[in-house]
Design a protein around this nucleic acid. Structure first.
Lengths: 153, 153
DNA sequence: ATTAAATTCGAATAATATCCGAATACGACC
DNA sequence: GGTCGTATTCGGATATTATTCGAATTTAAT
């Protein structure tokens, strides 16, 4: 991981479909050398995949909600059951086990408020072990996910 | 947006470097027809880009923090100044303007607790207009960002 | 300085994306 | 149900890009 790898990661994190020859120019390498480094970053696990970014709004998902969830108990069994259910719920875009007041932080996108109400009733509140839920609505995304802050190490 | 487009988006959201011919097989189209649809989804704004997913852990970022921020005032000027500063801070991976108690929700990744302390002191607390900050640590990512739940419309 | 290993470069080859004309499917209207 | 116009598809031709490989160069250690 030298400064060239950092540049490569940084560019690929913005646009992973640019031709390797273009990327090679940007970082000051030949195409083949750049290609070799990319393959090393892939096999080394620094790059975990390449994905299309979809525009939630363009697909009709106009609202985004962060949901803090508290469970009845923190027993291993309760957590496990809860997490298994989360994995199966396509309505949930992301889930973190948290330190602090709430046990979990979920992230949900919905088409509109009515759609969210439906998700809240039929999916979220039916997750096993839930004692309390608090929804926080995002009014506007100030800065969309900008990726890991790749800096020289 | 028919069911084939939905399939295309769904596959590309998982892996955007698969050959179009492979994707075409999966969705039951010829390569050229599939290619045409992808271009339409790009120009139509449903696909906003293609990015490499980096593994934060593999790059030395072992912790992830959600930070709720309350400002001194909610005047347009205060918000604008704050947001401008957020855009310039590479330590901040994501930022939402929120409804509810806190004004903003930030997302930060850090190499370790000491690194986060430094970010907290030198970057976050120096953002203009901040009255109160509350950090919530993610202990474990139960379900990483799974993308927009693309469903037939 | 000398050596060994790692990395680079450039060119050849293989794979993939893109373009285009012809054929097919689809919808609106009669 | 038939007819027309439009949109979409298919398959092949071409252009671009990815990948491989040997030789040359750089790097790091002694």
């Amino acid at each position: 991981m030298d400064r060239i790898d950092v540049k490569i990661l940084s560019y690929l994190q913005e646009d992973c479909r640019m031709p390797i020859s273009t990327l090679a120019d940007k970082v000051g390498l030949s195409t083949s050398a750049c290609h070799r480094r990319i393959k090393l970053l892939e096999s080394g696990g620094q790059i975990s995949g390449y994905v299309a970014r979809l525009d939630a709004k363009a697909l009709g998902y106009s609202i985004e909600i962060f949901v803090e969830i508290t469970l009845h108990s923190q027993s291993e069994d309760t957590l496990e059951q809860f997490e298994r259910a989360v994995q199966k719920a396509p309505e949930i875009s992301e889930c973190h086990l948290m330190a602090g007041q709430a046990d979990y932080l979920l992230r949900v996108v919905a088409k509109n408020v009515a759609d969210y109400e439906q998700i809240h009733r039929n999916a979220l509140s039916r997750l096993p072990g839930v004692a309390h839920m608090q929804s926080s609505f995002s009014l506007r995304t100030v800065r969309p996910w900008a990726g890991v802050p790749v800096i020289q190490s």
